[in-house]
Amino acid sequence: MDQAAVHGAIRGLYEGILDPGAWQQSLRAVTDMAGSAHASMMVWDTVTDQVTVNEVVNPVTELFTAYEAEFQVIDPAKSFAPRLVPGAWYIDARDLGPQAMARHPFYRDFFNRFDLRSYVACLVERQPHYEVYFSMQRAMSQEAFSGEDTRKLDWVVPHMRTAIAMRERTLALSTLASLSSRLIERLAFALIVYTPDRRLLLANTAGERWARRLDPAGKTAGWQLSRHFPDMLQAACDPATPLGAQAARATDSLGNHAEVLVLPLPPAHAFASQWQQPAAMVVVHEAGAPSVLLDTALRNLYALTPAETRLASRVATGEALPEASRQLRIRHETARTQLKSIFLKTGCTSQPQLTHLLTKLSAALDGG
């Protein structure tokens, strides 16, 4: 096998993480090496039992349209799919057999009608609700696929699996980053997310202005903090015991002031999933700015539901969970479930810790 072609196909898979054209060229190269008439990536929605064909090499519109609309329902490969593990191949001539292929309506009424004889499918990815396959087809003028054919392609499967995982991860991060940016611009206060070494990860417009004011010395552009800002970040990002809800007052030479709150970003937080490292969320509320209700802030910062927000507000005052559930007229088990969700979203592990967080947050947002 041409090693230059192999390396080119592998390189194309990884370039295809960001460049769909490179991905298509790589699939075409693999298809040519296998001597196939057509190839495609196929996604099987195991909930609706519907197969979608995309990223087709040498497309024939009628072929793949007919498959999706009618013949995917009787595709004999589906009965073999549960036995496959990721990276394994279904080979029709081996698994179904030539005699069964000759009698099966999938081949008699569909495949042969499009001058196709045989096909293989590799399980690339299996998720709870869908599966991804790489499939190739051969024409009637060619030999049926064999185990030897797929063994010659074993080199491509790990790279294809890795590239698909990276491509999905990249797409998810891009989507989340775009969504996060739009959402935080709607906040009525400055929000910034930092690494322990003060590298800026995320900020809304108001947060960007404050990021320029918060320097290692705790002051810039005439503003001074009552506590050393880098130390606050380090304490919030401590992976073992992050210090929750630290507050500081920022003042300038003209007498203006603002409340700066530094919060550890819980690993479960929607923002945190982007960076795979400890991070701190900084909230700044300037004196004279419109008042921000605590429940609104909880929904914006931690995605608490209205029911979770109501429970958090009562528990944070020191009210016991049984009493809070009675006052809210919900079952104790429901309150326990909601409290666990609140802890997960806020990073708190106890009611006193939650009380401390909400007290500091409320004071900062009220400018007190």
Rank of each mutant, 00 (worst) to 15 (best):
D109P: 04
G97C: 09
P128D: 13
V132D: 01
V156L: 08
D154Q: 15
A102Y: 05
I164F: 12
R113P: 01
F114A: 02
F145N: 02
E143P: 00
A93E: 14
W89I: 10
Q99K: 11
E131V: 04
A144G: 08
D95N: 10
Q99H: 08
L116D: 00
L96N: 08
R151C: 11
N112A: 10
F111W: 00
I91E: 03
V85G: 14
A93S: 15
V124T: 01
R94H: 13
P86H: 10
G147K: 09
M140Q: 10
G147D: 13
F111V: 07
A121Y: 02
R113A: 12
S141I: 05
P86I: 13
Q137L: 06
R126W: 03
F110K: 08
R161E: 13
M140T: 05
H104N: 14
H104L: 08
H104Q: 10
Y90F: 15
F145T: 05
K152Y: 07
M101E: 12
Q127C: 10
R103T: 07
S141N: 06
A165S: 15
M140L: 14
R108Q: 13
P128T: 12
W155P: 02
S141Y: 09
W155Q: 07
E125N: 11
W155K: 07
D109G: 06
R94Y: 12
V124I: 15
Q127G: 07
H104Y: 05
